[in-house]
Amino acid sequence: MYNFLSTYRFANGLEVKNRIVMSPMTTMASFYNGMVTKEEIAYYALRAGGPGMIVTGVANVSESGKGFEGELSITRDEMIPGLSKLAKGIQKDGTKAILQIFHAGRKSTSKVLRGEQPVSASKIAASYPADSEVPRALTEKEILQIIEDFGEATRRAIVAGFDGVELHGANTYLLQQFYSENANQREDDWGGSREKRLKFPLAVIEKVNQVVAKYSKGPFLVGYRISPEEIETPGIRLADSLYFVDQIKDKISYLHLSMGSYQRTSLNDKTDSRSLVSQFAEKTKGVVPLIGVGSVESPADAEAALADGADFVAIGRELIREPKWVQKAAAGEPLRNTLSPYDLDELAIPVAMQEYLQTAFRSVMHFTEDGTEFDSYQNNLAPMEGFEKKL
């Protein structure tokens, strides 16, 4: 009788069958124009039915927001039929389908954008990777258009039949860039003080909520994903993120942390031994549900994350290796904790995804040919958090 198998009812009435969430993970499996492929649908469908919710990999809301090749898009109504098939594939056996939406901002390249210069809050290149391009600072008109784009993306997600959207305000993408003093050094109403740097994400949340109120015929979630800290100076510190949560927690359906280990403590303040999950839980408890995440491999890990203050537990790499993780945990059956390269096709892992799992994420994927000593993200940023090497 694991706690993570208990049901949960959101404030808007949406009920999920358990507290396990499949983390949003990049598949790189969409068509060149961002439309859904059968390969993507098969990947999600194999993992559906177990988790209470599945959050898709990111879908860009603007043509200028594409961050990498093979990325899902929700920029046009023509995307809706494919997205509807994706939603239905996830929703079998009662799993709720959440579409993650974003704008990459300066974390894109002119190559990905077909010759167009990346955009951001200010004309400042990202600190990493070292060859990051200098973006063009968005005009106010363009900022207002991107806010509208988030709203239109939400409308399309509703029409496609998703149960919610998750605003990807983590991993150094545009929503985070506007809040970060590292990326946003504007001198107008969209930058400067911490309150002004909050204006863009707050405007996006407001627009999305307006669209949900107008178009949704039933309970529809608006989640928000956040990275607790940046390691650059200047940059977002834990106190900034906790302040941010105070400003948005009554405007969203859930808060989703983005980090490689649910046990992580502050990367900037080594004197702070408290887990980040517990510190965010102090802000969210009784107000908005919190999703903890990172290196949750066993049922015991999931229970520990809940005991630390999370209301939900997101698992990612474990569901890649073991698509029936929830069902097997509930039945008390052994869980596959390693991954054979020969099983990648059987596990319906898209071909492009297979390649980066065996490169950028290899040290934490537990490939059988790599022995029994595996890496972790306890004390360093993971690749999905926007960093490319250990601290």
Rank of each mutant, 00 (worst) to 15 (best):
K141I: 12
A170N: 04
V36Y: 01
Q177S: 10
P334F: 11
R264G: 03
K270P: 00
E187I: 12
E333I: 10
E297H: 04
K111M: 08
L138P: 03
I90C: 09
A239E: 15
F31C: 10
V288S: 02
Q247E: 14
Q185S: 12
L339D: 03
K107A: 04
G223K: 01
F367I: 09
T139L: 12
A170F: 03
Q185F: 04
F178N: 02
R19D: 01
G52W: 02
N209L: 05
K270R: 14
N380C: 10
I205Y: 08
A300M: 10
E369T: 12
T172Q: 14
K285H: 09
K390F: 13
E40C: 08
I226H: 03
L99M: 13
A348Q: 15
R336W: 01
P51H: 03
I74W: 02
L83C: 10
M365L: 12
T359I: 06
Q247R: 15
N12H: 09
S227Q: 07
K92T: 15
V296W: 00
V165N: 03
K96R: 15
E142K: 02
G49H: 00
R9S: 13
S110W: 01
N33L: 08
L202C: 06
Y254Q: 03
R47A: 02
G13T: 11
S266C: 11
G50C: 08
Q247Y: 06
R156P: 05
E140M: 07
V326M: 06
L344I: 08
M28Q: 13
L72W: 02
M353K: 11
K88M: 09
S108Y: 01
L276G: 05
F31W: 08
F178P: 01
R106T: 05
G191I: 08
E230A: 05
I291K: 00
V208N: 02
K270Q: 11
S273H: 13
I124M: 08
I80H: 09
I98A: 01
I41C: 06
R155G: 01
K283N: 03
N182K: 14
E206P: 06
M28W: 06
I147T: 11
K390C: 00
E15Y: 05
E230Y: 05
N182D: 14
P383N: 09
T372F: 11
L99Y: 04
G52K: 02
E373F: 10
V211D: 02
G151W: 03
E152K: 15
P341R: 15
Q185N: 14
A330H: 09
F374P: 00
E369H: 12
G235H: 11
F68K: 03
Q378N: 08
E166T: 05
E373M: 10
F367N: 06
S64L: 13
S275Q: 09
W325E: 00
I236C: 08
E373D: 14
M79L: 13
K38H: 11
A97N: 02
D131L: 04
I41S: 04
W325Y: 11
N171F: 00
T233V: 15
E333A: 15
E116H: 07
F387Q: 10
F361G: 00
S193W: 12
L238A: 06
